[in-house]
Design a protein around this nucleic acid. Structure first.
Length: 471
RNA sequence: GCAGGCGUAGCUCAGCUGGUUAGAGCGCCGGAUUGUGGAUCCGGAGGUCGGUGGUUCGACCCCACCCGCCUGUACCA
């Protein structure tokens, strides 16, 4: 009868994370900074729901042969399949198709929010993450592409990145196809070849050559089959990476969109040190039809394992002229770029970008809760972040609580203070310094470290004084 | 999906060639200390040893299968 109930294990689904105060604050400043830049360009915000009809996202229905293929799906009670959005571009296409007549064209919008992918998570890769997208729908002009790239540069600089710490790279699908054609790559092998080239960053020239040819073994000894090209074809493709001048040797028609974007950017003050051609940029295979972009960080970052790595891509995008046509039958040119907020945040936090929380003040409960509420309310009215302790513990534990909660100051108004019309303010950070030199408990307890007692009606004034930035 | 590694307390881990009451540190709770954070000391709670089956007199330990986690790789809008 009194069997021990089987308790659920407190655990998170893999690939999902809890995010705590520090990270939330940092992400908030990051998002607000980008938002400010994008709005200053005249982009309008848009929000769409987490769920869409699966077919509207352009996925196959998750039934027998393709169960959930990469997306989280469920059947609604009307038997229709719903999926969590896996990016912000597919919902945008749906929105544009649904509201086409009333939208100004070009329609320029930004959207930030979480997206979900039902894939195997890895280091720095999650099944729920935040993207910050900007897209221009209804213009096939390179001006639309160039504007997005410049805007991303501005956003990165607004976040404190210096020239040379980031670069926005541009490539073109047309150009890649031209190169493959010139190397006599059969169309059936196009995908495998592009995927191999895409791994240049991670695997280097040797790894890419192996994947273009027979294949390669990974660190666990597992073998990956290659694209099966011959040496001549491999060499021909690899010369593309030989130098920055490679583009000049290619058919100018294939490269004209890149050239136009670069010319516009450079005449607007965004030279090759910021927006540049790179033949190694692939960006997936599915829907891009023209130029593709990727923003990369160039400074080393220390990861959780303490290793120094070059962080790489923090944003990507490109031109997709067929997405809206899926709904309307009408071709609508569109281009967009998406910032991986979580990735960018991880990179910037390692260099000290943190959201600045206002210091917290905790008013201890010492006999008269209404009075501690009053003190906290007074501090809040003066613009401080202040809380009155609402637990049931005694003073030593309340101080521990304040410590753990990251409070800067503690306010105490006990019987002694109250009797004299006074109130005590303790500076926890200074107190922690003092504690280092203390040997015995009696000494520590008696010291009342870093604590001052002032007239009750000078509370706000004194707090302001203590928290004032030291000049 | 494929390959390799690993599952013991809330967390990090120890546990002899299989031997009977499964341990430590940290954290948590209580006390030494009616109202002052740290340090120290004492006490306490907390475990289906990932699961199932097998081998054995006996399994945390060996075997099989399953599940989960980690790493690499593949796929990735």
């Amino acid at each position: 009868m009194s069997q021990k109930p089987s308790r659920p294990k407190a655990r998170l689904p893999r690939g999902f994370r809890d995010r705590e105060a520090g990270e939330i604050a940092a992400e908030r400043t990051l998002i607000e900074t980008i938002r400010r830049v994008y709005e200053s360009y005249g982009f309008s915000p848009l929000e769409t729901p987490a769920f869409e009809y699966t077919d509207a996202l352009g996925k196959f229905l998750p039934d027998v042969d393709r169960p959930n293929e990469g997306v989280f799906s469920l059947k609604d009670d009307d038997e229709q399949w719903l999926s969590l959005r896996y990016d912000l571009t597919a919902p945008l296409a749906r929105y544009v198709a649904e509201n086409f007549q009333t939208l100004p064209k070009p329609f320029r919008r930004y959207q930030v929010g979480p997206v979900w992918r039902n894939e195997k998570p890895g280091p720095g890769r999650f099944r729920e993450f935040t993207q910050f997208d900007a897209d221009t729908v209804g213009s096939n002009s390179p001006a639309a592409d160039a504007e997005l790239l410049m805007m991303v540069c501005d956003a990165l600089e607004a976040l404190g990145l210096k020239r040379g710490e980031y670069v926005v790279k541009v490539n073109s699908r047309k150009l890649l196809d031209g190169v493959l054609q010139a190397a006599n790559v059969e169309p059936a092998r196009r995908g495998a070849v592009l995927r191999a080239i895409d791994k240049f960053d991670r695997l280097g020239e040797g790894g890419v050559r192996a994947l273009l040819g027979e294949g390669r073994k990974d660190e666990s000894g597992d073998f990956t089959k290659g694209a099966g090209l011959n040496n001549e074809q491999i060499t021909s493709i690899m010369t593309l990476f030989a130098g920055a001048g490679a583009i000049a040797e290619l058919d100018q028609n294939l490269a004209e969109d890149i050239a136009a974007i670069q010319a516009l950017a450079s005449r607007s003050g965004y030279a090759e040190d910021r927006i540049t051609f790179d033949a190694g940029i692939i960006r997936g295979l599915e829907y891009y039809t023209g130029p593709v972009f990727e923003a990369q960080l160039r400074f080393p970052v220390t990861n959780e394992a303490g290793e120094t790595v070059v962080f790489g891509s923090v944003a990507g995008g490109g031109r997709y002229d067929d997405l809206v046509a899926r709904f309307t039958g009408q071709q609508v040119p569109a281009t967009g770029i998406s910032i991986g907020v979580s990735r960018l945040l991880a990179a910037l936090r390692s260099r000290g970008l943190t959201g600045k929380d206002q210091p917290l003040i905790v008013v201890l409960a010492m006999g008269d809760t209404a009075r501690s509420f009053a003190a906290a309310r007074e501090l809040r009215a003066a613009g401080f972040r202040a809380e009155a302790y609402v637990g049931t513990k005694k003073v030593p534990d309340q101080l521990k609580y304040a410590d753990k909660h990251g409070a800067a100051l503690v306010v105490m108004e006990g019987d002694d203070e109250r009797a004299g019309g006074k109130i005590a303010i303790k500076d926890l950070k200074r107190g922690a310094e003092v504690a280092k030199t203390v040997e015995t408990r009696a000494e520590w307890v008696g010291a009342r470290a870093a604590q001052e007692t002032v007239e009750r009606d000078r509370l706000v004034e004194k707090v302001r004084d203590i928290l004032a930035p030291k000049a």
